[in-house]
Write a protein that binds this DNA or RNA. Sequence first.
DNA 1: CTTGAAACCGGATAGCT
DNA 2: AGCTATCCGGTTTCAAG
Lengths: 153, 153
Amino acid sequence: MFDETDRRILGLLQADADMPIAEIAGQVGLSASPCWRRIKRMEEAGLISRRVVLVDRVIAKVPLTIFAGVRVPSHSVDWLERFRRVIADIPEIVEAYRLAGEMDYLMRIVVPSIEIYDHVYKQLIAQLEFRDVTSSISMEEMKFTTAVPLHYL
Amino acid sequence: MFDETDRRILGLLQADADMPIAEIAGQVGLSASPCWRRIKRMEEAGLISRRVVLVDRVIAKVPLTIFAGVRVPSHSVDWLERFRRVIADIPEIVEAYRLAGEMDYLMRIVVPSIEIYDHVYKQLIAQLEFRDVTSSISMEEMKFTTAVPLHYL
DNA sequence: CTTGAAACCGGATAGCT
DNA sequence: AGCTATCCGGTTTCAAG
């Protein structure tokens, strides 16, 4: 379905989506049109889902990352769906996962400061019941990439 | 520095980086050139850091997300720097944070399966000492966005 | 000093070999 | 797969508010 050349092209695009096709083609040893056709094919297959701009968190005034692990009072489908709706509407919550194990859910939240985090926290507990919420502050983002490993493809 | 119009433009670009400028301009009630100039300004200011393609994790065969929280044996700068180098070289580790509190570090790891996660885990403990590693499997990605909240800007 | 219209230009797209 | 022709959208310029 996809070969090593596709993976190399995709690797470049995961790093920089507006690299000119001519340059990508050059780096993978192809001329522009076949390279372009491969990209098109990866888009049509849904492998490339979309292109986005990445915003600098410090300049956007949301330098702080906080993780909130929560445990639920009741393991009901109803609670899950209400939780889903609540987190969808809070832009500070950028990631949320339902976990197997100790914690029921884990969220990554980006905010300007601890004070503002408290607002988000209150917003959360005002809308839903929780058994408990454990917040961990990130002191340093050591690695963050939107690029997924491609060698299993 | 940046006003509501900039935020609206940026919001659109965070959702879809290749929306034509003419359409963005239309949506924010501007014509193409001033809109283009605003985007340029946000790029030059570093607010827009770059554009990337987002890859579908299921199609790329890495559907599984696992969180690994670790505690260190020794709180030394040396250990931290070695850790930094190790995680930089493992593409399955897509995020890593140094935390304040119970856990010392938290990583988000994307893999095809638990079996492959075990490889990554072994790769990790082969290169560094850990006091302990706690892994949590994600059953469901409920929310994931690269878009940061813009209303603090 | 900022906007919008319009001309320009380059790279993305499509057809053909 | 690669070459070439077309075309569309980003970029620049310039006149007007």
